Simulated scan of single mutants.
Amino acid sequence: MLSSFAVLSSSDVDRIRGWFRGPALAHPPGGPIPLHPERKDARVVARGWVARGAMLEDGRRQIVGLSLPGDVILATDSVDADMAVWALTDASTLDATLLWDAISEGADFSPRLLEAWRQFRSAERLRLARHVIRLGRLSAYERTAHLLLELYERQSRLGAVEPGVLHLPLTQDMLADILGLSAVHMNRTLQQLRRAGLVDYRTGRAILPDLSGLALAAGLSIADALADARNFGD
């Protein structure tokens, strides 16, 4: 993930790996991710998808962020601090507390590694801002198109996508919880996108045959994100 933001040397990569503490913890779907604020825990997602969000008393939930492989989950000093964190799919995480502490305390990392980390964290903040815009100002049709483009760009950074194919191990209920929609509205919106020739959604993946058309459907200026998706998908 960091290498997608800046060209890192083999010594940079080795140094990052040296800060992780094993063994990896496995998390079943729906299982909580253990984070202890008093210890300022940080964990990196090694496999699977992880959600951050709020559980309401009536059973509803709102997912405010998704963590994919390579993303760091923090117990404090972030939006994670007062929210639940759980695995959406089979997942595993590694203890990254030492890495987070080293960067926060200004350890002597190479300029390229520090720049990659800065851009990585900036991208996280930008995603949060975009999610607020999605929920507050976009229609169900627009917000679904926008989320799919964002996830495609993020997976492209990992080098894990075929052009126009999005790995999407989320149910329609999970997508509804991310986008603030009912399950019925979510299903109807995906059908609309399918009829428009923009999305062919199946559990496990989504085919995106027209990225430019999907960007137009999002109703928001995301030219940079679309350009990234194309560049990394090539």
Score class of each variant (00 low, 15 high):
S182L: 07
D71K: 02
S9M: 08
A145R: 05
P29G: 05
W117G: 08
W19F: 15
G197R: 02
L148G: 02
I103Q: 03
V64N: 12
Q191A: 13
L114Y: 03
Q62K: 15
W100N: 11
R230L: 15
L2C: 01
P32C: 02
G164M: 03
A46H: 00
G213S: 06
D58E: 09
G197K: 01
M1G: 11
A26Y: 05
S122T: 13
V7W: 00
L94Q: 00
L113R: 02
L98C: 10
D224M: 09
A206S: 09
T76K: 04
G22A: 05
W86R: 00
A87Y: 06
A196G: 04
A160G: 12
A206G: 07
H131G: 02
W19T: 14
R205I: 08
V161D: 01
Y152C: 04
T171F: 09
R202Q: 14
T144H: 06
Q119I: 10
D12S: 03
E142M: 05
D173K: 15
N187R: 15
F5D: 06
R15T: 10
D177V: 07
F109Q: 01
H27N: 14
G136I: 09
R154V: 07
G70P: 10
L151Y: 04
A183H: 12
L179H: 03
D177A: 13
L94K: 00
T89H: 09
E142C: 03
P169D: 03
A81I: 05
R137A: 15
R125K: 12
S182W: 08
F5G: 04
T97G: 11
A140F: 00
D210P: 08
L66A: 01
F232R: 11
F20H: 05
I207P: 02
R134W: 04
L216Q: 13
R137T: 12
T89G: 11
L198R: 09
T171I: 03
V50N: 01
L193G: 04
F5M: 01
R154F: 11
I16M: 10
M186C: 14
G136W: 13
V199C: 09
Q155A: 09
M55C: 10
D108F: 13
D173Q: 15
D210C: 07
L190H: 07
A42V: 07
S182K: 00
R205Y: 15
R194N: 11
E105R: 15
R39I: 09
P34K: 08
L135F: 03
W19G: 10
A81C: 06
